[in-house]
Amino acid sequence: MNWINNVVRPKIRSFLKQRDDSAENLWVKCPESGEMVFYRDLEANQWVVPNSGYHMKIKSADRLASFFDDGSYETVALPEVPVDPLKFRDQKRYVDRLRDSRTKTGMDDAVMVTKGRLYGRPVTVGVQDFDFMGGSLGMAAGSAVITGLETAERDKTPFVLFVASGGARMQEGILSLMQMPRTTVAVLRLREAGLPFIVVFTNPTTGGVTASYAMLGDVHLAEPGALICFAGPRVIEQTIREKLPKGFQRSEYLYEHGMVDMVVHRHNLRATIGSLTGILTKAEPAPELASQPPVARISMRAAAVAAEGDDDLVTAPPEAAHAE
């Protein structure tokens, strides 16, 4: 029966899965409260579960569409990078993994860079997508982050970066590690040009990404309940051999420990970043923002973020990287 389980079943499964997608998965289960939500309601609510407030993963395109004025933006071309210089192979060849991820997601790699307007003012925005090999940081993603920072510097705009990552892309070995200093150079140059760099932590952000550009923003915002860490919970548990405290390494915990400035509900990100970038660049006030009451921008989510069992949801899939 083994070969049937191993060979045939995955094929059938993937076949069924494709069918599922095209037939539309009408109901989505909230990973926190377990309630079933109609997917159109979720979509309309920027993938925040209406009752529990749980922030689900949102596709890059959806995020950008709800962030920019009128949902319109331009995609910035990214530099070509060498493919698989290590000729890496684990259980699978890296080039095959890359090809599969590209087919599955329609993206070239984990980071895309865009420009558009936010409350009428030009802004450069990067998004790191966890769906592409766990948002792992390889040469392509590193170069994309650099392109984003350099585009902002050249266009004299603020740079907003939504981060999500399982860490370094191990299949690129040391060249993945080198993205930490490389991106840091670009962060420094944007800073020296006097332009703001706003980082938005989304679930999850770990490893080498947290330990480089993500922690070097002028302002750090975080979506509620996001896992943000250097070493992942599992690595720590294995090292110290004890259970971790509830809420450990979540956005609210990092806020308490002084690592992020605000925990912001996804619905309030646009206005918060609009105000921040406007104030820091001394732009004319935007009327919509000036007339807005100081919303609960620091929306600390009351719900226990460390609901038991949600650890699996935020852990990188096996092909995703992880750094120490």
Partner: peptide, 8 residues
């Protein structure tokens, strides 16, 4: 770098 609770 050390992966521990205090370090994080």
């Amino acid at each position: 770098a050390y992966p521990g609770i205090g370090a994080e």
